[in-house]
Nucleic acid binder design. Structure first.
Lengths: 271, 271
DNA sequence: TCTCTTCATCTAGTATGAGAAATAAAAATG
DNA sequence: CATTTTTATTTCTCATACTAGATGAAGAGA
């Protein structure tokens, strides 16, 4: 047999996942260049065992090494083979079950659920998909979702933003203009701008959804960056969105954001 | 002190939650009147202990009895007070953690996460919100999301549906027309129609999202039903959506679906 | 007095064994 | 052949012991 699932073969991406959980609260989109992804005060130096197991199994499942209908190894067996306790394994299975990936019954064992039951928008599931090697369909699905969600968010933001939202967005765009997307500060400002739009929608479920979607987009574009030397100047698109939101023009904000995403996606090679 | 969280005070709604997990696969939206919500073959007669604990704590959290930043009772203490084992309690906490509701650290205890980290689109979280007594903002958020998602789904469906999709949708509409929304068969046909549209989008993340949204909508309208004796005839709206999808007119399908939802929502008293 | 270090303490995490409950499959019964 | 009973297997639950790491307070040093 082979040795182990070993999630440590992809350290770069693996680390990204951790950034999203357990950071400090981040208030609401200030633009300080706090972008050290590793600046967490004191994460448990080595991940908990049950967490590592869930990670390994999660990748194996979304990566297709287990198919829907397959049954996971029994508790005794897995614990013995992997040298962990049944407790840790069971807790890992509970996590997977909570995300809809598997379903446990006595006597039958725990089976992989049908993909329709998977919680595709869960941040961990998305991260696992990404680590397992995202399929073209997966990426297409997410980018389509982005095209659905972000323009709608801009529309709601245009109708509900207050003065503070406007001023913060303006500040983010200023910084973005000043530093450019080649610098970390510039990219942080870009992220802030989009986060501020989300915040201005006053819709928590929309925020949750968009957070997942933009995470995948960020992971994707992080590697697609710098393919062409100089891509299109992003500022006019952003200014147009900001202008529409500021003036409270919902439909216009939606269309401008749609244009922004279309341009950004084609520049990144997607779409 | 009070006795226990006791999720059994709301039997009707509590049972709804169970229907979504662990049913048979359901292939893809056939119209047979299989709508007995209680027809599951052999669910564990009484729910697992860790599941009940997760349920109780989940409701307590989303219902605001614990605020973000609060810490849950320690393992020893909770186990002693509630008469369960530490194991069961820990597994429940793992579930909540997997859904983003809490975050555990040694010595600090497990704290309630900021709402931004909650997995608002998780079916269980949504169900708990609903059981805890959905706030007006929560319902507004979900209905807004529905208005964003379902028209977009119709648009994609119009571009990607195949002959089988069309024929199934047509059949569903026939049954819906035949039985009407006053009967269980008619409502099942209605659900099938919407599910078939989702299926035709060929986008799994969209399907996952819409599944959550429509679940909440269904729970809501289940109680708002029959307020007015005879509401508007739903068939013309449905026929219009179907027609646009059949002809492959994406933008038209989007607009017709938007109209359908608007009408249904106003009839149900929402919006 | 202040700062840094050390250390006791508290809590979640891991491990193990033993048994209960559920259920799929086999066997017995009509 | 249908139905019921038994059997075997697997998850589920509990109890207990121990580990590890974060926290805060006591103590040492400036």
């Amino acid at each position: 047999m082979h040795r182990q699932f070993s999630s440590y073969q992809m350290p770069e991406i693996g680390r990204i996942r951790l950034d999203d959980r357990g950071g400090r609260a981040d208030e609401s989109g200030m633009t300080q260049a706090d972008d050290h992804p590793l600046s967490r005060p004191s994460s448990p130096a080595q991940r908990a065992v049950h967490d590592r197991i869930a990670h390994d199994l999660g990748i194996a499942i979304v990566g297709g090494r287990y198919q829907p209908g397959d049954i996971l190894p029994g508790e005794e067996r897995y614990a013995a083979e992997q040298g962990v306790s049944r407790t840790a394994y069971r807790e890992a299975v509970r996590v997977l079950s909570a995300k809809g990936l598997v379903y446990s019954r006595t006597k039958s064992g725990t089976r992989i659920n049908d993909r329709l039951r998977w919680n595709m928008l869960d941040l961990d599931v998305l991260a696992w998909m990404f680590e397992a090697g995202p399929t073209a369909e997966f990426l297409r699905d997410i980018f389509e979702l982005r095209i659905v969600v972000e323009p709608a968010a801009a529309q709601f933001a245009a109708l509900r933003r207050d003065g503070q939202d406007i001023s913060r967005m303006g500040h983010a765009l200023e910084e973005m203009r000043r530093f450019g997307l080649q610098t970390a500060e510039g990219r942080a400002a870009d992220q802030s701008f989009h986060r501020l739009i989300l915040h201005a929608t006053r819709n928590e479920s929309l925020i949750t959804l968009a957070t997942s979607v933009t995470a995948v987009v960020a992971w994707t574009t992080r590697f697609a960056r710098d393919e062409r030397k100089e891509s299109r100047d992003p500022m006019p698109d952003h200014d147009a969105v900001f202008d529409a939101i500021m003036r409270g023009e919902g439909e216009e904000a939606r269309l401008k954001m749609l244009a922004l995403i279309r341009n950004a996606s084609t520049d990144a090679g997607m779409l």
